[in-house]
Every structure is written in structure tokens, then in C-alpha cells.
């Protein structure tokens, strides 16, 4: 890896981590999800600084080419992240539904109560 490429990639990662922190500060990303992404970027940083790790792991696991392993890991990781987002959306939808139902029933009860008092 050329020194220039290494430098650019590191800069890109540092900017990415900065964006995560900024988003957390703006309360648009929770600490929990910030942590996920930060860990991923730090792992990438380590791999850029010590690319030999990738070569060693790939040959140990029997991959013909090191990038194959990287792509596989990346796809699995992204798949997991998307799945957890889907699960979260489902949970939020369920909560949202329950809140709408509870408020609507309460509103009806309240109105009936008012009608009785009149």
C-alpha cells in the first residue's frame, strides 16, 4: 500500500469518526449505535496501519485472496447491521401502535366522562 493511499484512508476514517461524534452531540444518533460504528472504524484503522494482519488471517483460514475474506466479513457485518435496524424499526412500530391505541382509548373515555358530567 502506498504511503499516500494509507494517509488518505486514515484521514477518511478520522473524518468518519468525527461525523459520528457530531451526530451523537446533535442527539441524532444514540451512544449505542455510535459505539457500533466507532468500533468498526477503529478496526479498519488497525487494518490500514498493519495490513499484514489481513494477509496472515486469510492464508490461515484458507482464502485464495485476502480481499475475498475482507468482502465476506464486510457483507456479513453489513447484513447484521441492516437486520438489527429492521428489528429496531419493528419494535418502534409496535410501541408506536400501542401508544396510538392507548391515547385514542383514553380520549374516548375522557369524552364520555365529560358527557356524563354535563
Amino acid at each position: 500500500m502506498s504511503l499516500n493511499l494509507k494517509f488518505s484512508l486514515i484521514l477518511l476514517l478520522i473524518v468518519s469518526i468525527y461525523i459520528i461524534f457530531k451526530t451523537i452531540k446533535a442527539k441524532k444518533l444514540s451512544m449505542k449505535f455510535g459505539l457500533y460504528w466507532t468500533i468498526i472504524f477503529i478496526l479498519m484503522l488497525i487494518l490500514i496501519l498493519f495490513p499484514n494482519i489481513i494477509e496472515t488471517c486469510a492464508s490461515l483460514l484458507g482464502f485464495k485472496e485476502a480481499p475475498n475474506m475482507l468482502f465476506l466479513i464486510a457483507i456479513f457485518l453489513l447484513f447484521y447491521l441492516v437486520f438489527s435496524v429492521y428489528a429496531n424499526i419493528s419494535k418502534i412500530n409496535e410501541n408506536n401502535k400501542n401508544i396510538i391505541q392507548d391515547i385514542s382509548i383514553l380520549e374516548y373515555d375522557l369524552k364520555k366522562e365529560k358527557g356524563r358530567k354535563k
Partner: peptide
């Protein structure tokens, strides 16, 4: 007698209410 859902929920959410 009517419960007005404050948002549209679809048939399942309405019946469950």
C-alpha cells in the same frame, strides 16, 4: 359510540384497539 384513532393504524391495529 366511536373511538377515533389519532393516526391510521390499518385493520389489525384498529380491531386490536
Amino acid at each position: 359510540p366511536v373511538i377515533n384513532l389519532i393516526r391510521n393504524l390499518g385493520i389489525g391495529g384498529a380491531v386490536q384497539t
